[in-house]
Design a protein around this nucleic acid. Structure first.
Lengths: 350, 350
DNA sequence: GTGAAAGCGCTAACAG
DNA sequence: CTGTTAGCGCTTTCAC
C-alpha cells in the first residue's frame, strides 16, 4: 500500500486505515484495544475502513511499542510424550482466554538445554514463563531473575521457587503408591526408572525407597531404563524383571507409559498380571484405565496444573498476584486390576 | 539501563553494548548477524561487551525492522492427541535447525475456528505456515493468498494446494488396508469413525467404501463415534459393534486410538481378537505394536511429513523453492496379530 | 570494514 | 473523546 525507500509494497498499516476512516492512527489503535473509549460513530467508520482495506493488526510493532509481547513461554522436557499434553492444553486454554499466545520449547530433560532454550526465548520478550520442573542451572536462574519476567514453575515442589509455584510432590505421591502396594500385600516391590539427570524421576524413586524402608521390606530394588518415556523401554525392563530370582511380586514404574509397556510385555511372555506380578504406574493417563487388566496409577491433575500455572502467571503479569505465590496440587492413588484389587479403590490425598 | 520519559528502567540495548565496546550499534548488529563481515578485534570487543552487560538480543525490534519474524506457524486440529505429536516434532526439529521459532495453534477440526486462528496468527507476522489439512473456508484461503505468506499444507492431498503440499492420500491408504483385510479372508468388515466435518476422516471412510465395493462385499457398514480421538470412544463403539447381528468379522478404525479402545473393550467383554473379531487401525502409533494382540495398522510417516513440510516451507521463505511444490508421502500396511496374521507382514506402498 | 540517518508500525504520554 | 509528538530497539541504505 506504500512504497518506501525502494522497498517492496508493505501491507496495510494503521495509518492507511486511519486515512480511509478520516481519523488519526491513535483512534484506530483505540478502536482495536479500548473500544469503549471511542465514539460509536467513529468506531463504526474505523471498523468499516478495517474491513475495506483488509487491515491486519501488527502485533510485532505493537509489542515493541508497548513493551508487551502478549506471549507466554512454556518450557517442558518433551512435547512428543503423552505425559505433558494435558498440561500443555491447560496452559494453552487459559492463554487463549486471555488473548495471549503460548509458545513452547523442549529441554529433553537437560538443564543445560533448558538454559539455552530459555535464553533463546527471552529474545522474543515473552511476558512470562511456565516452566516444568524446579531444577535449573545457576545461570538459568540468574538469567530469569535478572530479566524480571514472571515465572511459574510446576510439576515439582521446592521451598525456593524462582518466583511462583504450582507444586506437586513426586516424593509423597510415589511413597503413597508404594504404601498402597504394601497394604495390598506385596512384599518384593521393584521400581523402574530412575534417571540421575531428572529431579522429578529422582524424587519418585526416593519416595519409593522411603515407602519400602518404612514398611521394613529390606533393600529396595531400583532398575534403570535408557529411555524413560517409551513403551518399548517398559518392555525391555520387563524382560529383565522376569528373569530375576526371586522375581519381584510387583513392579512400580516411573510413569504409565513404562508401566503399560511392562504390563503388556509380561502378558506376552506368559506371566499373569497381577497373578504372577503386579504392575503400577504414575500419571493417571487415559489409556491406563482401558488396559486389560486396568492399570493402577497415581492420578495427578495434569490439565489443572497447566491451567493453574497459566492463571498464576497471568496474574503475575497483570500485577494482581504477588511474587512467591505457591499452590500445592494433590494426587490420587488409583488402585485397579493390575495390582489385584477386584474393584477399583481410589484414595484421595494431599 | 536508561530512564526514558519517566518509565521504568528498560533492559540493556544494542546501543548500550555499542557504547561499552566503543563501536556503533550497527557493528554490534553485524557481530550478531553477519560476524564474518566484522574485523576480528572489534568482534572480540563487542562479544566481551555483550557478556559484560548481559545483553539479550531483542527479536521483537529485529522483526519489526527487518520485516522477518523468524517464526513459522503450525496449524493443527488438536495438540492433545498422540496422532500429531510426531509431526509437531518433525516441524519443530527442522525449525530449530534453522533458528526459527515454531508456534502452534489448534482448530479443533473446525474450518471456522481455523479461520480465526490463522487470522490471529497473521498478526504476529509469521514467515510461513504449515497447515494440517487442505480443507479451508473460502475466507481462509483468500486471507492466506492475500497475505503472501508461504504455506505448506500436509496430511491430506489435493490437486489445488494454496501454495505447496506434502501430501498423503488418506483414501488410498485406507482402501489399501481394506483390501488387505479382504485378502486375509474377512468378509463383514465394518468401519468406525466418519465425521462429516473432517475431510481426512471422510477420505478414509471413502477409501474403505471403495475397497468394500471393489471386493463385491455388499453394503459397507460405517459407524460413527462422537469423539474420534479417544480410547473411550473406541470402547463405546465396540459395545455397539458387539451387539450387531450378524456381528462383523473385522472392525477397521479411523485411527489407532479408536482401534486400541475397541480392541481392549472386545477383550474385556470376552470376545477374542482376532478370533471373534479382527481389529485394525490407522496411523502406525507406537503403542500399536505393543498391544496383545499387536494391532494391524496403516503406518504413515508422521515425523517425516512434519519434517518435509517444514523444510519445504523454509525453502519457500528463503526463496529457493518455487510455489506449487508438491511431495507425496507413502504409507505402509502393517498386518499384525489383531487381524490374524501369525507373523507380521508388511507391505510397502505408494 | 564501519558508521549515520531514516525508518519499521505501533503506542505512551500529554494536550486539547 | 481525539490528536500530536516522540519514541520502542533494531536494520536498511548509503556514504565513507
Amino acid at each position: 500500500m506504500r512504497q518506501k525507500r525502494g522497498g517492496r509494497a508493505a501491507g496495510v498499516t494503521m495509518e492507511d486505515v486511519a486515512r480511509v476512516a478520516g481519523v488519526s492512527a491513535m483512534t484506530v489503535s483505540r478502536v482495536l484495544r479500548q473500544p469503549t473509549l471511542v465514539n460509536a460513530d467513529l468506531k463504526a467508520k474505523v471498523e468499516a475502513a478495517i474491513r475495506e482495506t483488509g487491515y491486519i493488526y501488527n502485533l510485532v510493532a505493537s509489542s515493541l511499542a508497548s513493551q508487551r509481547s502478549g506471549i507466554i513461554a512454556l518450557i517442558l522436557p518433551t512435547v512428543a510424550s503423552s505425559i505433558f499434553t494435558d498440561s500443555v492444553k491447560g496452559v494453552s486454554d487459559v492463554a487463549r482466554t486471555h488473548a495471549v499466545q503460548m509458545i513452547m520449547a523442549e529441554t529433553n530433560y537437560s538443564p543445560a538445554e533448558e538454559e539455552k532454550v530459555i535464553e533463546a526465548l527471552l529474545r522474543r520478550r515473552p511476558d512470562g514463563f511456565v516452566i516444568v520442573g524446579v531444577s535449573h542451572t545457576r545461570a538459568t536462574r540468574a538469567l530469569l531473575e535478572k530479566s524480571g519476567v514472571p515465572v511459574v514453575e510446576t510439576w515439582d515442589s521446592t521451598p525456593t521457587p524462582i518466583d511462583s509455584l504450582v507444586g506437586l510432590s513426586n516424593f509423597d505421591a510415589m511413597k503413597a503408591m508404594t504404601e498402597a502396594l504394601v497394604a495390598q500385600g506385596f512384599r518384593r516391590i521393584a521400581f523402574v526408572g530412575t534417571a540421575t539427570r531428572d529431579r522429578r524421576a529422582q524424587m519418585r524413586a526416593k519416595g519409593y525407597e522411603a515407602g519400602i524402608a518404612e514398611a521394613g521390606l529390606g533393600a529396595p530394588l531400583i532398575l534403570n531404563a535408557d529411555d524413560l518415556t517409551s513403551m518399548e523401554s517398559g518392555r525391555v525392563v520387563a524382560e529383565r524383571v522376569a528373569a530375576l530370582h526371586p522375581r519381584p511380586d510387583a513392579l512400580l514404574c516411573l510413569n504409565d507409559v513404562l508401566a503399560a509397556g511392562a504390563l503388556l510385555a509380561f502378558q506376552r511372555m506368559g506371566l499373569a498380571v497381577p497373578g504372577d506380578i503386579a504392575v503400577a504406574g504414575f500419571g493417571g493417563l487415559d489409556f491406563s484405565s482401558h488396559l486389560n487388566p486396568s492399570l493402577s496409577t497415581v492420578d495427578i491433575p495434569r490439565y489443572e496444573m497447566g491451567q493453574k500455572a497459566a492463571e498464576m502467571l497471568i496474574g503475575r503479569i497483570a500485577g494482581t498476584a504477588a511474587q512467591g505465590g505457591t499452590c500445592e496440587m494433590g494426587y490420587r492413588i488409583v488402585l485397579r486390576e493390575s495390582t489385584g484389587s477386584s474393584r477399583p479403590a481410589e484414595t484421595q490425598a494431599s
